[in-house]
Design a protein around this nucleic acid. Sequence first.
DNA 1: CGCCCGACTGAGAGCGCTTGCACGAGGGGC
DNA 2: GCCCCTCGTGCAAGCGCTCTCAGTCGGGCG
Lengths: 336, 336
Amino acid sequence: MGPRPTLEAVAARAGVSRATVSRVVNGAVGVRPPLVDKVRKAVEELGYVPNHAARSLVTRRTGAVAVIIAEPEFRVFSDPFFEQQIRGISRELSAHSAQLVLLWVEGAGEHERIARYLEGGHVDGALAFSLHKDDQLASLIARTRIPAVFGGRPAPGAGPLAPFVDCDNRGGAREAVRHLVSLGRRRIAHIAGPRDKIAALDRIDGYRDVLVDAPEELLWQGDFTEESGARAMAGLLDRCPGLDGVFVANDLMAAGALRTLRERGVRVPQDVAVVGFDDMAAVTGVTDPPLTTVRQDIEGMGRLMVRLLMRLLDRPGDEAPASVITPTTLVRRATA
Amino acid sequence: MGPRPTLEAVAARAGVSRATVSRVVNGAVGVRPPLVDKVRKAVEELGYVPNHAARSLVTRRTGAVAVIIAEPEFRVFSDPFFEQQIRGISRELSAHSAQLVLLWVEGAGEHERIARYLEGGHVDGALAFSLHKDDQLASLIARTRIPAVFGGRPAPGAGPLAPFVDCDNRGGAREAVRHLVSLGRRRIAHIAGPRDKIAALDRIDGYRDVLVDAPEELLWQGDFTEESGARAMAGLLDRCPGLDGVFVANDLMAAGALRTLRERGVRVPQDVAVVGFDDMAAVTGVTDPPLTTVRQDIEGMGRLMVRLLMRLLDRPGDEAPASVITPTTLVRRATA
DNA sequence: CGCCCGACTGAGAGCGCTTGCACGAGGGGC
DNA sequence: GCCCCTCGTGCAAGCGCTCTCAGTCGGGCG
């Protein structure tokens, strides 16, 4: 077999020019059928596969997209949320026959490496996640001038950045709280996520939108883990015995809260109604009673990120990067 | 700014030839210091970054490695086992300044796409995982003739394949069971993993190595989930009341087994001693009592895969792909 | 003082592919 | 029957880089 066949070889075998082979390989527009067949046959016989480097040298396209994952905490990767988003991205990418290049950033020390990589023409664009308030990655990516789309709304004031895809955290939170209100609940607490996550802040805002003068004591801070939800619920119960509803910023904490309520013999939803956020199947499927929560289409968001990026890539001129806020829906189960 | 500067531009600015700039950019061997400085300065001022496609067109190296993830089940990706391995791979790869291209295969229908990709010169080599007995991916990869290293021992009889890295599943299992024996346990059961996973089979073999004539009723089949471990334990308890030790094929199932034992009021380790496998921090950290288990260095295995691959890439001639079986260690905690 | 050798540097030939352009043939309109 | 236009094909110029090879320039040695 030896070296892999080139266009030249295929052309020789098919008795046509390199140009024609190239045209056939790339879609055969304006090539007469008999020639197309001859070329296809030669390609088949020789087992020809186009050389990527040569192609992208001239087209200035690589067909690859970087997915940048910053991981200040430990287990972003095995987070089911992330998994779903990556899955959506991966699927949509292969629908566009583009490849996913994973850039795992383990600290600011690697920023330089990432920047060089993005600038080296390895990828056509980048997908990144701006989860934290103080993420420097966003500005780094902006500096490389590579087309990019973010997952999650960047911190306000981060400058005129790339478009982003985020779910309507604030609106979803409003809907959750309004639902509790419509159930006749009067003292509705909120177990919030960490203050450095934009999504957590947005959900607090949504809660406040509905309950404008909710006392500070009804707001408790968690860190998105099951354990912190359990602790928060315990604290809330001690501090505000009159409590009859809780909106929890994510499902995992809601599961923790339910556990505490059960341990204390508080009936759900009779005594306290609970609404979560995310609709993570892994969680809502196993809580007892089944969790009422706010659903966001995570995989869809991943797909959307890719579609936005592809649109950016297709018309590089346009400076019209419209971000997308995807809707959320309240899923009523048994806790509220 | 316009188009990105090329070697040519840097050469012009520094008043040298392209060749010299190239030499400086690639390590500056045999270039006189004053020239080096001039070139470095020009590179800096112009913000020059080498074009990847052009470089790899001539060097025939891409500096990228494919990581192929087949996902017949649903959530391989968020598996903590996988995360650790990917982490090791990612770290070692960036130590070699190579990139990770993620190939997520969602079914046999995508095999063709993967093959073309691997053959298109997008990557220098591939890392894949052979988890299942009937994995066709392995032979697919072999057919592409691209340098590859596997994670996990391929099914026997899969032909002369690429080297692999696997932990000593059988030896680790032997050690676990011997430990139970040394504790004086006489009726030791085994909760096994699914029959189509090589690792699960190896662990059964290890169990049998020590307990050559263990009756069939002491062997129970699970599927590596917590729930299946709980069920298996319940079944075992019903079937073999005299049971005083259990070797469980992974930590997650062991956690389930412990739950069942607690619910039934069986004391661990007094009545029944339990040993798991994997030493997954997420599991062993939270069981009560803390789980005695067999540790394998998962991240290290990921790193090792990369190192083997790099060795393959450095000397393409050699056909000496020595596979590596990494050792396991018994970690004694409180359950045995 | 001239010659030879070593150490650098530059010229140039590709790597395999796409694509603008020229060219040739065939067909329709006048 | 001639001209022009269209369609299909080939020619050849690069894309930006590496690397061989030849050339240049000093310096050491005879």
